[in-house]
Nucleic acid binder design. Structure first.
Lengths: 144, 144
DNA sequence: CATAATTAAATTGAGTTCAATTTAATTATA
DNA sequence: TATAATTAAATTGAACTCAATTTAATTATG
């Protein structure tokens, strides 16, 4: 027991969070490769599969990402033909992202991903539920 | 209830993990700025504050990072005078990273960081303990 | 022993992330 | 209404992450 114990990697809560998130994203890779999306592109598409239309700011609030990250991701999705990007007529500061038919079609393939990933997890349902609850509690209090 | 529900962002377990980890790393920033370390440099230093000497491979196993990430990080720490990097005499494939006196000295300043961060968390101790347990369970089963 | 296989770091390239700044549009106010 | 303040995206630059490849050293095998 030393005054430096708090500095040990095994006593951090952030470290396993960070490592775990990267490890799971790695598990997604083979499945996302099949639909030619990166993880960030995938979660951006998730929002659009659900909402169809959304501006960058609103998307950023949902995904906890700013325009510095989202702009290149959305341009990439546009170049793949999955979304369109256009300024709002009523307020040209806003960029409106809309899913295309090709983007909608990709949803049919993507729907198999969550099932495949679920099989990789070794958590009990109660553990997953607990984890989910705790993470959203943390996220809720970090909202800017 | 649709067959696409599994594709909704609010039904993912990976997403809050990923968002949470980035949000917490953001919280570290002001404290790490004071000791001129990034988060990745900080966790690398954590290993060395504890072990003093370690090769890149062993460090990578602890941190779940490969040489592609660690090499530039360690070169940066070397340029700051916090570590030295030298090939092992007994097996020149191995690069041995050793903490310097300056690196050791930084530990005195760094020791205030975990305390400062702990104050930012809104989790109950039991929640933090549960989170820790679940995350290491997940990490344990993703070990390659 | 010579060659093949393996191993550890480093390198490369694509993509992500974020802080800080810039640009352009809109809203508020003197 | 002109100017100031605010807002939304985009841009820039530094750093991280990872897959894939390369280089060099070591170990295993024919």
């Amino acid at each position: 027991m030393s005054k430096y114990d708090a500095l040990k990697i095994e006593n951090q809560i952030c470290f396993p969070l960070y490592a775990c998130s990267r490890e799971i994203i790695k598990q997604y890779k083979p499945f996302l490769d099949e639909i030619d999306l990166t993880y960030t592109q995938y979660i951006a598409m998730m929002v659009l599969w659900d909402k169809k239309i959304m501006n960058v700011k609103a998307m950023g609030e949902i995904l906890y990402l700013d325009s510095g990250t989202l702009t290149p991701v959305l341009k990439k999705l546009e170049s793949k033909g999955l979304v369109t990007r256009q300024r709002s007529a009523s307020d040209e500061r806003n960029l409106i992202v809309t899913i295309t038919d090709m983007g909608e079609a990709l949803k049919e393939k993507a729907v198999t991903v969550p099932t495949a990933i679920a099989k990789c997890s070794n958590l009990e349902p109660e553990e997953a539920a607990m984890l989910y609850r705790i993470l959203y509690k943390m996220l809720g209090s970090s909202k800017t």
